[in-house]
Design a protein around this nucleic acid. Structure first.
Length: 493
RNA sequence: GAACCGGUAGCUCAAUUGAAAGAGCAGCGAACUUUUAAUUCGCAGGUUGCAGGUUCAAGUCCUCGCCCGGUUCACCA
């Protein structure tokens, strides 16, 4: 840890911290444990306020988030994740002994309240305290009560402060939890089994990304954190698990950005005997279900800091499905696919699409797609029948073998989900992987190819980037706002 | 990895051309028995991210400086 005394109390602490330490000592002198024991509650702050009834004896606990001192009468707000309730503390009511304890409290402390509900003159649902119980002392000042935490470094490094101070953050993360639980329920109801496959892998496959390297000492073996679970889930198809999914972390050792965290949450699901069209149907249904349940409908509004709507995503069904080639031709000219490689490069210059001279021909088209189609697609669109070079694990189309039977779901200018008719011919799979491995130094997962030789049923498969899905549904502009503890650089060193 | 922007009190932010570092909240003291960002009076709070340099004087100017963050780009099936 850091060499600084920042978190060691003995020396070099500011006035604010000293004052709280003194209150801590004072509590001990009064015979009170400042880090107390359990406290039985009859209700929670948010629920009590929402379903308020007068003249009820209650016991509630929470963190002090506001304190309005009127002398002999004080008003506190105590809060939990879901709301707040006002506490009325009167010197006479709680008695001198308890008042002495009460006077050592600060905003940020955890307390328990025993008392009776009533409504104040101005109509605020409140609890008149009979006994104030110290549950836990906070030794550091809370963030600004009005502005909350703004500094991104504090938000991300000390997420607990963000959660305490910013209601919006609390909402986003609670929504994320609910959505993830709902996805599990949705798939479970359809008969999918949730499985767990290795995150520590010998050969990292299922995607083309840089893996994190690590080592198993007892086995004397270099290993990798998985970049995708795909190849293991397909082994389960071979084994007869005909509907499986995994919803968990994968790891990619690449750039960090607004849309990339080195560890991210991905859903992959495989459905034997289905194809990519059925998978698209299911994803469309599932995402709409989430939006209706947690976002109040199919119109998703993204707002800026001032609360103004900056973008509206319309998830109304049915979602558009258009072949990749049509979309590129629409953006780059109807004759795009009749041009030769040089002609396409020239067209890119005219269109202002940046390309590098060493790009393969299909990469030039892909660049046009990314810049002129993907980034401009806000409402959902399933881009189907992508060039086969882009997707080595999907089945080729029977009529046009230059494309594969896949969709790429684009929403809000970003890839949300790919879906394939999975390639199950072991010989073709080997050829496609070797062709790809030739360009980029990538090991072939021989055990996976062996499994395919035993026979994998035809199947549809999907991947969904959960972080990006949550961003889209909650209007978060950065993946860091939907990941509780995003990766940052070590602060000192 | 590259470019641009940012880092000032615990938090949120000011500081003109280089000229005495300031406010609100939080804190401490005082008044107030129904307040809602309570109010009023007073007090305290700073190595201006770090390290050098220029200057009589630097938060401000300088360093293919260093650290951390943000955005964009690159990378990312």
């Amino acid at each position: 840890m850091s060499e600084e005394n920042e978190s060691t109390p003995a020396e070099d602490i500011g006035e604010l911290l000293k004052v709280r330490r003194e209150k801590l000592e004072k509590l001990r002198e009064l015979g009170i444990d400042p880090f107390g024991k359990g406290f039985d509650t009859t209700d929670t702050p948010g629920n009590l306020r929402e379903n308020f009834e007068e003249e009820k004896q209650v016991r509630i606990a929470g963190r002090i988030t506001a304190l309005r001192d009127m002398g002999k009468s004080n008003f506190l707000d105590i809060s939990d994740l879901n709301g707040r309730i006002q506490i009325f503390v009167n010197q006479k009511q709680i008695g001198e002994e308890n008042w002495a304890v009460y006077k050592q409290l600060d905003i940020g402390d955890w307390i328990g309240i025993e008392g009776e509900t009533f409504t104040t003159k101005v109509g605020e649902p409140s609890v008149k305290a009979n006994v104030v119980t110290m549950l836990s002392k906070s030794l550091r000042p809370m963030p600004d009560k009005f502005h909350g935490v703004v500094d991104p470094q504090i938000k991300y490094r000390q997420r607990y402060l963000d959660l305490i101070a910013n209601e919006r953050s609390r909402e986003v993360f609670q929504k994320r939890c609910a959505m993830v639980a709902e996805i599990r329920r949705y798939l479970g109801e359809k008969g999918f089994l949730e499985v767990e496959t290795p995150m520590l892998q010998d050969v990292p496959g299922g995607a083309a990304a840089q893996p994190f390297e690590t080592r198993h000492n007892a086995l004397s073996m270099d290993m990798y954190l998985r970049i995708a679970p795909e190849l293991y889930l397909k082994r389960l198809l071979v084994g007869g698990f005909d509907k499986v999914f995994e919803l968990n972390r994968s790891f990619r050792n690449e750039g960090i950005s607004r849309r990339h965290n080195p560890e991210f949450t991905m859903l992959e699901a495989y459905w034997a005997y289905a194809d990519f069209e059925q998978m698209a149907d299911m994803v469309e249904d599932m995402v709409c279900h989430l939006a209706e349940k947690y976002c109040g409908g199919l119109l998703i509004e993204h707002k800026n800091a001032e609360g103004e709507v900056t973008k509206t995503i319309n998830l109304s069904r049915p979602w558009k499905r258009t072949p990749y080639k049509d979309l590129v031709a629409e953006a780059a000219g109807a004759d795009w696919w009749d041009l030769d490689a040089a002609g396409r490069q020239a067209r890119c210059k005219e269109l202002g699409v940046e390309i590098s001279p060493d790009m393969e021909d299909y990469e030039v088209s892909q660049q046009v797609f990314e810049k002129l189609v993907e980034e401009k697609s806000i409402d959902p669109i399933f881009v189907t029948h992508v060039s086969k070079e882009l997707v080595p694990l999907a089945k080729q189309n029977t009529r046009d073998d230059s494309v594969v039977d896949v969709y790429e779901l684009i929403i809000n200018g970003a890839e949300i989900s790919p879906g394939y008719s999975e390639l199950n011919d072991p010989d073709v799979q080997r050829e496609r992987l070797e062709h790809q491995a030739g360009e980029e130094i990538q090991k072939i997962d021989e055990d996976f190819l062996l499994a395919l030789e035993y026979g994998m049923p035809p199947a549809g498969g999907i991947g969904i980037g959960i972080d990006r899905l949550v961003m889209m549904l909650t209007g978060a502009e950065s993946i860091r706002d939907v990941v509780l503890f995003p990766q940052l650089k070590r602060k000192e060193g």
